[in-house]
Simulated scan of single mutants.
Amino acid sequence: MIKRLVFISILGILLLGCKAKKRTVSSDSSKQESTLGGNKNTQMDYESTGLYPLPADTGKFQRFSIGSVEEYIDTFSEIAQYEMKAYGIPASITLAQGLLESGFGKGDLAVRTNNHFGIKCHKGWQGDYDFHDDDEKGECFRKYNHPMYSYRDHSEFLSKRARYSFLFNYSSTDYKRWAKGLRQAGYATDHRYPQKLIYLIEKHKLYKFDKGVQLNDAIANSEPKIYENSVHVVQKGDTLYSLSRRYFISVDEIKRINNMNSNNLAIGQKITVKTELSKK
């Protein structure tokens, strides 16, 4: 027990000192002021959650260079397991998404922003950001001073949004259902997204990181959510895609809950959208 407590308490230091040291090639102060409602370098209050310690936010961007898939897994597998313990998201899924979305840690977006999960700014984001071409040109993506903040934000992002709530009814070791569910919920537009995640998990045996992780229900379920279905009346110019962006719900989910077989909308049509009301 003593050994475990000591290990947890110095986890951030070890990653910064041993692993991160050999991968960090440069650091620079972020000079962008956020126009999304907050100050630059604003990060969530991670330490108050009672989870493992993250590196102190020095206000400086730490640039990482990952040499291989194996090095990426070695660097972040333990972090993925701690996130699984706290939030119930399979470590294998987190790692596979990190590998895929970050281009194995070498992608332009990941290198420039330490954003390993392709999470866009979205309404309410108060941290740093950068722009990157994705579904549209010059989209806003979240920027972190250290990749570990990206891992925590990924857990928060999935656990606190209505459209992903059904995933947490799945077993935390059923990576195949999670992979398919993420696509269903609209995490990615790529129709082969589940197959790509499953391929990475099985090729690199990422499922082994799901085994033996004891979930911390007190933390994962500390803020239960209340949901309600609301109705949007279609206006001129509305599309399923624009509604999905407005209400943070996938196109597939809108079609499912409205029993729609096509993407066509009519002015005045009532569309049910699932929205998150509040947290207790």
Rank of each mutant, 00 (worst) to 15 (best):
G268C: 05
G268W: 03
P224H: 05
I219K: 11
Y227F: 15
V233C: 04
L265S: 08
L240D: 06
S222L: 02
Y247T: 00
P224T: 08
E228C: 03
R256L: 09
S222C: 04
I254R: 06
D238A: 06
S230H: 12
H232G: 09
S222H: 13
L243A: 03
G237F: 08
G212C: 05
S222K: 13
I219H: 12
K225F: 04
V233I: 15
I257F: 06
L243K: 06
Y241T: 12
S230T: 14
N264M: 07
V234F: 01
R256D: 11
V231Q: 07
Y247H: 03
G268Q: 01
G212P: 06
Y241R: 09
K225P: 02
S250T: 13
D210K: 05
I219V: 14
N261L: 00
N258Q: 05
I249E: 11
I226Q: 14
Y247N: 00
S250R: 13
T239N: 02
L243V: 12
L243C: 10
H232C: 03
I254D: 09
N259D: 14
I267P: 00
M260H: 04
G268I: 02
L243Q: 08
D210G: 02
H232V: 01
A266Q: 13
G268P: 05
A220C: 03
L240R: 01
L240Y: 06
E223V: 11
Q235L: 11
S262A: 03
N216G: 01
V251T: 12
N221Y: 13
R245T: 13
V231C: 01
A218R: 15
N263G: 10
A218W: 07
S242P: 06
K236S: 10
S230Q: 12
Q214E: 09
D252L: 09
T239S: 13
I257E: 04
T239P: 09
Y247K: 01
I257C: 09
D238K: 02
I257A: 05
G237Y: 03
F248W: 14
Y247L: 01
D252F: 11
P224R: 11
Y247G: 01
T239L: 06
R246M: 09
E253L: 07
S262C: 02
I249L: 07
N229D: 08
S222N: 09
I257L: 14
S242H: 12
R246A: 09
V234G: 01
L240K: 00
